[in-house]
């Protein structure tokens, strides 16, 4: 199946008649895909997700999920999707189990069904041992998992995750990635996620859209995006003091050869395939390669190229807002 599960056409949101948060955005997400939305703060990621999950109404354009129009058939959309918000929305005064039942009630799931499902979901996110503990005793990672369980309570076909690993430690982030992969693999779920972590998008997403100033600047698989920068960089040196530029240029996929500080810098697509070819071609001519290194461009370079910003700046900002949020949650408890 490769039909479009999410389809956005000219999707636009203008706040207060002048603030264009999302500007005629077009993209589509295929069945069973993990689609990542990357972008600096204020780029329009959350506004886009909020329109798709029917919390905000688009000013212009349209989008559909599983064929349901987000504006006209919003109730069908709501029944078909699951949402794991950025914030910890679970009620601290209730237990994990009670929280899942509350979420189930919001979907009108009868009690006899939701009790069984809550147990299943708690087992899935490994919280069964804590099901009767109040959420205020949970760690950050446990809360994330509980949010995930709540988002799955209506057995959604499409799951939206807004910054699923924000503020988590390395192990918990890795565990979250595993859950996301499992959802795709075991249940064929389509996942739409926003993230600040480039390595996360790289490791997890089948396709990525980079959004900046409300516009999508580029869409593609992580490899496509990296290759769009001109490919991998192979740096090598040879024993003999001869110019091999012409020789290397003739090799398939090689785009550019430069000599810098006595090293040859070769730009090529699929560097791991090109590198042995270069060694082979040089050996045939009697040249001996003494050093060779292969660098693949990371999403960081892609990101920088398309947004003109380093991801780290954006991530720092969002970490601050996460701290503010946690401080607020503590206050709300009084």
């Amino acid at each position: 199946m490769s039909e479009d599960v999410i389809k956005a056409e000219g999707l636009t949101k203008i706040f207060n008649h002048n603030l264009v948060a999302v500007d005629h955005v077009n993209f589509s997400v295929k069945q069973g895909e993990i689609f990542g939305f990357l972008g600096p703060n204020g780029a329009g990621k959350t506004t886009t997700i909020n329109m798709l999950i029917t919390v905000l109404k688009p000013t212009e354009g349209r989008a559909s999920i599983l064929g349901y129009d987000i504006a006209k058939q919003n109730n069908d959309v709501r029944n078909a999707i699951g949402v794991v918000p950025q914030e910890y929305t679970a009620d601290e005064d209730l237990t994990g189990y009670e929280n899942i039942l509350l979420c189930a009630d919001l979907y009108g799931i009868p009690r006899e069904v939701s009790k069984k499902r809550a147990d299943e979901l708690l087992a899935l996110v490994e919280l069964t041992a804590f099901k009767d503990k109040k959420v205020q005793t949970y760690s950050g990672g446990m809360r994330r998992r509980l949010e995930l369980a709540c988002g799955l309570v209506n057995r959604p076909k499409v799951l939206f995750l807004d910054e699923p690993t924000l503020g988590l430690d390395v192990q918990t982030r890795a565990a979250t990635w595993n859950y996301v992969r499992m959802l795709k693999k075991e249940f064929g779920m389509t996942l739409f996620l926003t993230t600040h972590y480039l390595e996360e998008a790289d490791a997890l997403c089948d396709r990525i859209a980079i959004i900046d100033h409300g516009k999508i600047v580029v869409v593609g698989t992580p490899d496509e995006l990296k290759e769009s920068l001109g490919g991998d960089i192979i740096t090598l040196s040879i024993k003999q003091d001869v110019d091999i530029t012409g020789l290397v240029k003739k090799i398939e996929r090689v785009k550019e050869v430069k000599k810098e500080n006595g090293m040859y810098v070769v730009k090529s697509e699929s560097g791991e395939v090109t590198a042995p070819l270069i060694i082979e071609a040089l050996r045939k001519e009697g040249h001996v390669v003494t050093k060779l290194s292969l660098t693949k461009p990371t999403l960081n370079e892609v990101y920088l190229q398309y947004t003109g910003k380093s991801m780290r700046d954006a991530a720092d900002e969002s970490r601050e807002s996460a701290f503010a949020q946690r401080a607020m949650m503590r206050r709300s408890h009084m």
């Binding site: 918000p85 914030e87 979420c103 709300s332």
Partner: peptide, 16 residues
Amino acid sequence: WDRRLGFLNKVLSTPV
């Protein structure tokens, strides 16, 4: 608080 802590948005995305 429901608004600030994201609970309101969460409920708005459900069929309630």
